[in-house]
Design a binder for these strands. Structure first.
Lengths: 211, 211
DNA sequence: CGTAAAATCCCCCAATATGGGTGATTGATT
DNA sequence: AATCAATCACCCATATTGGGGGATTTTACG
């Protein structure tokens, strides 16, 4: 069974370039080409693509919003973002939107075919630097001024727990937690939960996510 | 300049197998082999490895704790986890510990060489399925019962903001926020911030991470 | 051994936040 | 017409928070 591919890209030559290359591959079937998300979404049900090659800068709805819509309608469809820039903010938002890979548009079109194959094989194609970025996003605890216990307390704060709840969880008195909080605030030079969490988050002193 | 490699692996034959293969490659220099993290850490300063191949199940300190220690001493050293199992919990904790890649031990040793090269080239080698797992970990908002606004409010709660602060940020009254919270609690069947955050987090209705 | 840091606990106080209730209005969407 | 989303209001009791004083014990390190 041929894999159905849809391309959303506003640049005509790139769009047609993709089609030309992908058309030569028997296992692929290029369903349709679109210059914007709106048109593509209107025809999603007919196209039923297995893979969507999505540009990120588009007139009207951008590629990220488009990805969200596509995944909502076709959860099993793999959306691969194809772009010229490695904008970390966009990479992050694309992945959150449900993109299955983030490919940097380069001269070598055969690499793109390789990437599509990788995505269909269950992988998540990314350039080397993006893969590194993604993996590094898990990294935490650079050089926190906080002690282990304080980190633990702040982590609990970030989970929305009250002092009393944290005290229960850690088998200590509420007053102890308050002491830790005071020390944390002093070290981070803040005076509220929100500020402490913001700093701890941006420095990755607390986690926040699981696989 | 040759790339310095250290191997930490308790299985003798695998350990020696790696050395045998890597020794045949001119650009690599295998510094030392260790059967546990403790010994490896004691010699880190002499070895000064560019890359550490790390087993995850080890006697004494496990590979994850070892990774943390190594990264603390040699932040630029790349630690590649080599394991037989793709345990999502371990993958996650390894990456958090600072691992630069997570390679599944397989029969093909040449693939491992390829992976080391990829890591040295600035990438983050992973098996297809792990790459997919990692990327999917960014994915959010499966089918939340919450409205967009409610999600926004809950997100702010997860950031430790008070009702008043959220109200200011969203340019609405504090009472409006309270209404949203009440609706959120009703929908999620909880009655506290912590519980709401826990549910929203496990269902990925709120973010928590940045790149 | 002595010091410093970390972790533990206690009290006081005032301001704020929170959770629950019971509403109401407006604008979309269906 | 009915539903849902989003907005706002007021009441009330309790919990939480942040800041100020302390104190004790355990642990780590030179």
């Amino acid at each position: 069974m041929k894999k159905r591919i849809t391309i959303i890209e506003d640049n005509v030559s790139i769009r047609e370039g993709f089609r030309a290359v992908l058309d030569t591959i028997e296992k692929y079937e290029v369903m349709n080409l679109y210059s914007n998300c709106e048109d593509a979404l209107a025809n999603l049900d007919q196209d039923q693509p297995d893979v969507v090659l999505m540009d990120i800068e588009l007139p009207g709805m951008d590629g990220i919003a488009g990805t969200v819509r596509i995944k909502k309608q076709l959860p099993n469809c793999i959306v691969l973002i194809i772009t010229v820039l490695e904008d970390s903010e966009k990479v992050f938002r694309s992945l959150c939107a449900g993109a299955g890979g983030y490919i940097v548009k380069n001269s070598n079109i055969s690499e793109i075919v390789q990437n599509i194959d990788e995505a269909l094989a269950g992988g998540a194609p990314m350039s080397l630097s993006i893969a590194r970025m993604v993996v590094q996003s898990f990294r935490q605890q650079q050089d926190s001024p906080l002690t282990e216990r304080e980190t633990q307390v702040l982590q609990s704060i970030a989970e929305g727990k009250s002092y009393s709840k944290i005290a229960l969880d850690l088998y200590v008195s509420k007053e102890t937690i308050r002491s830790h909080i005071k020390n944390i605030y002093r070290k981070l030079e803040v005076s509220s939960k929100a500020d402490a969490i913001k700093i701890a988050n941006s420095n990755k002193w607390v986690t926040g996510r699981s696989l």
